[in-house]
Amino acid sequence: MTTQPDMLQVALQGFHTSRIRYAGQLGEGHPEEQMIIPTIEVIYWACVLDEQLELNDAPYGASPDFGREVLLGTRFARNRATHQLPMLIKKRSGLSVPVTVPVRLEEMVWLPVEDLPPGRPAPRQQRHYVQHLAGTPVRHTIDQIASWFAAEQNRQGSLLGKGTASLTEVPHQPNHAS
C-alpha cells in the first residue's frame, strides 16, 4: 500500500501544528513537566512522517544527512518507550545555549542510552540516538527535525512537495516580565 501524498501533508501539518504549540508553551514559560505533553506529540508526528517517507521515497530513505540521523535517533527513543515516552527525558538544571526568552533555569534533555527502558536491538538507530540526542535539550532536537523536514519539502521529487506548513516559521516567543 502506498501512502497518499495528501495524508503526508496532513501528517506534516500535524507536526507543524504541534511544534507551534510546543514553541508557544516554551515561550510562555510553562514548567518543564508540562512541556512533556507537546513534546510527545511533536515526536510522534515526526516519527510517523519519517517512517512513511522512508518506506515510500527511496532517496529519502537512503539519505545520510544530519537531519535523517537525528530522526533515526528519535525513532530509537520512541520505539524504546512507546508507552513510557515521558520517561526518556529528564530535567537538568542550568542554562543551555542558545538562551531563550524567558530564560529557563531548567531544561528537558534526552536520557543517556543506558538509562532508557529496555527494547529490541536497533543498532543503527541507537548509534544516532547516542550521537545526536542523549544529553541534549529536547528543544534542539525538535528544531533540528523541523529544519530537516523544511529541507525535505524543497527537495526535487520529495513526497512532501510544497505543502501548506512552513516548518521554519515558529510563532514569536513572548518576553514575559517576572
Rank of each mutant, 00 (worst) to 15 (best):
T3V: 15
A62L: 13
Q131T: 06
P171D: 09
V10S: 14
S63R: 01
L159W: 00
E169I: 15
T164G: 10
T136H: 13
L71S: 10
R68M: 07
A177W: 12
Y22H: 11
G161N: 06
A151D: 10
S63A: 05
V10F: 11
V97D: 14
Y44H: 10
P123N: 02
P117T: 02
A23G: 01
E114V: 15
V138Y: 03
T2Y: 06
I89R: 02
R155Q: 15
D65T: 09
V97W: 14
G29P: 10
S63I: 02
V10Q: 13
A77E: 02
N79W: 06
H30E: 10
P38T: 07
G119V: 03
P121Q: 14
R78I: 09
G24Y: 09
M7W: 11
N56E: 00
D65G: 08
L26M: 07
S93G: 04
G29E: 09
T141Q: 05
Q144M: 05
R19Q: 10
P59W: 06
G161Y: 08
A150N: 03
P112F: 12
Q156T: 13
L88V: 08
P59S: 09
L111F: 05
V10C: 09
Y60A: 00
Y22A: 04
K162N: 14
Q153L: 04
I142H: 07
Q156V: 14
Q34N: 12
L160P: 06
E33Q: 12
P117K: 04
L133K: 02
Q25R: 15
V109S: 00
P98L: 04
E169R: 14
V130T: 13
C47G: 03
D115C: 14
V99W: 01
Q13C: 00
T17S: 14
L49K: 02
L105P: 04
K91W: 09
Y60K: 01
V103H: 03
T2V: 11
E114R: 10
A165Q: 01
N175I: 10
P31H: 06
Y44M: 11
A62Y: 03
D6L: 10
Q4R: 08
G29M: 13
L95S: 06
T168D: 11
P64V: 02
Q126R: 12
H176M: 14
A151L: 06
P117G: 01
P174C: 05
A151V: 08
T164R: 13
E114D: 15
L167K: 11
L8Y: 00
V70E: 07
A151G: 00
N56Y: 04
L159F: 01
K90E: 15
T82F: 09
E32L: 05
Q4K: 06
A58G: 06
D57T: 02
S166I: 10
G163Q: 00
V70D: 07
Y129R: 11
V99A: 08
I40T: 13
